[in-house]
């Protein structure tokens, strides 16, 4: 079969909503796009542990501490499934992690913003997880099977996190004046970066068309962003807070809320590494990896010794134990 025929067959499967599985033939660009996207997603989960992990030691009650710790741990678990999903496409976890540390691979820019107060834990849950979920719900139907299945599991946990985040803001919004101010301030700081999570405008997005055709994505950046704005405008009313955008206004003709222009200059600056915490986040990941090197080496050396002692014929001796 010629490559052309294989490509037609592949597209036909996509069009018929048949999932692509690891051993199926796929165009090299499809493989690469999926590796890029899934590993980027995995890195986002892992780097995303840092801004929230920052508040575990200072959580204001034992219950909140338990909720936050469990949430950050869930993110580690999501990173793990996603690395495994990406590995099915032929790239090892180690290679992916090296790409993260060298700066070659990206992760969601949202995690390059600092978590300055406790209210940021709620704002991240509500806005950041809320934005992520819209993207992830779409990805539950993505064409690559292992990615779609990982997302189904992840989505369940993420919607739980979002509810917890909103609930924690709700408590602040009914609290003391200081707590209310803390809540509004966190919403003000996280609103615009959350809108940026959907990526560049459709007119500027380089990967969108092909990804839509291959059903890696099923909605465009702008469609998802609009859906998010429409949702949050309603939810913020329950908090008695406001969103920091004077241009927000219901547009009867479109059936959607209009909203102000994102500061694209800031967006590209953070993508290029100049966000407030880009350096700290990567430094923290590299440091953990470097400081863990002796541990990984010891574990590997011990596993070798054990293998040798269980297989004396292969040069080892049977351990006394």
């Amino acid at each position: 079969m010629s490559v052309h025929d294989l490509e037609n067959l592949f597209q036909q499967k996509i069009d018929e909503e048949v999932k692509i599985e690891p051993k199926d033939w796929m165009p090299e660009a499809y493989r690469k796009t999926n590796i890029r996207q899934i590993s980027q997603h995995a890195h986002s989960e892992i780097v995303g542990m840092l801004p929230e992990g920052n508040w575990i030691s200072r959580a204001p009650s034992l219950k909140r501490k338990a909720i936050l710790m469990a949430k950050v741990q869930d993110e580690a678990g999501h990173g793990l499934y996603l690395y495994c999903a990406a590995e099915t496409l032929g790239m090892s976890r180690e290679e992916m992690i090296n790409d993260l540390h060298s700066g070659k691979a990206k992760y969601s820019s949202i995690f390059n913003y600092p978590t300055l107060t406790w209210a940021d834990m709620g704002a991240i849950g509500w806005l950041v997880d809320g934005a992520a979920i819209l993207n992830q719900v779409m990805l539950c139907r993505t064409s690559y099977g292992p990615y779609a299945r990982a997302m189904v599991r992840i989505c369940k946990e993420e919607s739980f996190h979002q509810r917890q985040g909103f609930e924690s803001l709700l408590v602040l919004s009914k609290g003391t004046d200081e707590q209310k101010a803390m809540c509004q301030d966190a919403i003000n700081r996280w609103w615009w970066p959350s809108l940026m999570m959907f990526g560049p405008k459709d007119s500027e997005s380089t990967n969108s068309d092909q990804s839509m055709k291959w059903k890696i994505k099923r909605k465009t950046n702008d469609e998802l962003r609009q859906q998010f704005v429409d949702m949050c405008v309603e939810q913020v009313k329950l908090l008695g807070m406001t969103l920091p955008d004077p241009a927000l206004k219901w547009n009867e003709a479109r059936g959607h809320y209009d909203f102000g222009e994102i500061d694209w200059n800031e967006f590209w600056n953070v993508v290029k590494g100049n966000g407030p915490c880009n350096k700290q986040r990567l430094d923290a990941r590299r440091k953990a990896h470097e400081e863990g090197r002796w541990v990984r080496e010891a574990a590997a050396a011990h596993a070798e010794k054990r293998k040798a002692s269980l297989n004396p014929s292969k040069g080892g001796t049977l351990a006394a134990a």
Binding site: I46, G53, Q73, A76, A284, E291, R296
Partner: peptide
Amino acid sequence: SEWCGHGPILEQDIAITN
């Protein structure tokens, strides 16, 4: 919990947080 997000291996990060 200080290890959360800083463990030597992802699986062990999860274990110590657990």
